[in-house]
Design a protein around this nucleic acid. Sequence first.
DNA 1: GACACGTGAGGACACGTGTCCGCGTCAAGT
DNA 2: ACTTGACGCGGACACGTGTCCTCACGTGTC
Lengths: 350, 350
Amino acid sequence: MKKKPSARRPITSTAEFARYVGLARTTVSRVLNRQPGLKSNTIERVQRAMDETGFTPNAYAVHLKGKSTSTIGICMEDLLTPTAVKKLSALQRLLRSRHYTSLIEVLEPGQSQRLVRHFLSMRVEGIVFIGHFPPEELAQRIAELNGHGTPHVVIDHVGIPNAHSVTLDRAGGMVDVVNHLVARGHRSFGLLGISAWLHGKLGRMHGIIQALAAHRLPFAQCTRSLDHLHKRENDFEFGRTLAASFATLKDRPTAYLALNDAIAIGTMHGLQAAGLDIPGEAAVTGFNNQEICAMTRPTLTSVDQQIEETIRVGAEVLLGQIGQPPRSKPILRTIEPKLVIRQSSDFQLG
Amino acid sequence: MKKKPSARRPITSTAEFARYVGLARTTVSRVLNRQPGLKSNTIERVQRAMDETGFTPNAYAVHLKGKSTSTIGICMEDLLTPTAVKKLSALQRLLRSRHYTSLIEVLEPGQSQRLVRHFLSMRVEGIVFIGHFPPEELAQRIAELNGHGTPHVVIDHVGIPNAHSVTLDRAGGMVDVVNHLVARGHRSFGLLGISAWLHGKLGRMHGIIQALAAHRLPFAQCTRSLDHLHKRENDFEFGRTLAASFATLKDRPTAYLALNDAIAIGTMHGLQAAGLDIPGEAAVTGFNNQEICAMTRPTLTSVDQQIEETIRVGAEVLLGQIGQPPRSKPILRTIEPKLVIRQSSDFQLG
DNA sequence: GACACGTGAGGACACGTGTCCGCGTCAAGT
DNA sequence: ACTTGACGCGGACACGTGTCCTCACGTGTC
């Protein structure tokens, strides 16, 4: 005999609930808000009634009354790339531990204004942007938020004027990669999906150039890119076809630096399909250090994004703005990535 | 010279905003709610002022006034497994297209009551559960929701009494797998992480038994499991160590059926490390058909979960309850998965 | 018996919005 | 000049809550 929780219309206001308990509405309200000066007997009565009826105060009325919403808006580029989702997951967990609720929305192109308005109408106390967005659009939103004095932080998206941001030092990561490969005897490098225009000083290309220069290796002769030959999708298939093209070259590079892990894995497939041994005849490196890197044959050397650290700092930047006067200078924080060496590059040439 | 959007304190009420525009509050309200009988000139003035000030009506006050919240609560087991996130992504997109906002929360064990209360206090119009939860806990929440008459749907989690649910027919998927492997000449099967108690009639084991029986193959002699030898984590490493153990067997199976893709990939690694050719000497199949299946060597045969379809049906079940009288019988819908044959099993045994 | 004290009742107000209603204003049509 | 709409104004109320206030009741103390 289970106690049926009264399949009746649920109680929707403290007034109604107070009648059910047999107390005054104000008394119930004081119990719910843990005010002092109440008999423990009364408190228990209310508790019991809440369990019986499942009554919950209307959050809309509570916050209307002026209580802060403790809500953070999170704007995502999408929910399909593993790294984006990992960031989201880490961020939500962290916010929850600080007693913030998160409002998660995926931004469809051109809808950013509508989305930010939605967040503002929900009176969020701050907004986080995760992923890559059309820069002009994002810049406009940031300008609006600065106008309102709404706290915000942009994760890993450089070049937005006046935006508070946390960015991964991809250049630093590539410096580590190049140093590692040079130490293993490599002198010629294939670049897969890596272009100069991305991320400026913090971009991958900048790091590669810097590191090669430090080893007195001439960039133009040491590196080769075939990106223009194939449809650029930054995915597995892109890497595979690129590798097939590289394999036909007479003096092909001995090391391959990919924009991300999917391209790197595609590259390994392509090279292996052409009969090349990895890492014996060609080294391959990825970027992002997804779980998948440990599941390939050979396992893939990659650069870890330090997601936890990025999010930790991002939350710090965001929450630090709440309740403070708006800053005149944007906050810019940089995260150092970490090279994880695995089989795909761990072979001494010569 | 950019127009600075007035770094002043933002406007927070229609009254204040109406003073800014030079109209009556009620007139502004009628513009915002698209009521008829307004000069287009007036509408434009309000529009322009909204762009200038970025004013947004307080959602808490709007919904307090009785307007429905158009919000759906989504309760996730976690945000780290790719399939869970894919479901979330598909669901949120679908809900958005129907003009619902989603409230996404990750359930920490033991916090389900608090979480559901949070949803209810936000006056959601329905709740979706995605992932695997402690069954008793979930059952209790469902009972409460039924008590309130709050619409809900449980995605892919069988055995919750009185829950409206959408479930993948894993048994059917395994029937397809077994039929495929038998057609390729296999007669002995290694089971990796697959147990009988999961999901009952819709569970994998049930399908395997059924399919073998149809081929007049005696289950006990045809199948083998070594799950008890290793720490069960349902991940890559579990598969790898299992495979290592299988490799030492004298009369080892020729086909390996894994609970999921990660175990299957681990299994391939383990078998390959022992010198076995896949699919020449051993066939391997996964479950879930994640992207990664196309990136392994050899590519992995797997069973596709039909996530889009699952979510479509789930949303249909949920939204169908809104505004309707509560049902006495729970809705149970089943989704048929789809076998995707790739290299790892596509070999005709001699 | 007077008093203080602890506890709860009940009234009042504010929060921002949507909506209804009566009233003014202004221009166009008769 | 008068009527008729069209349009906007401003007052009023309700939504559910938190908080403050005053008042009443009961118990224990001096």
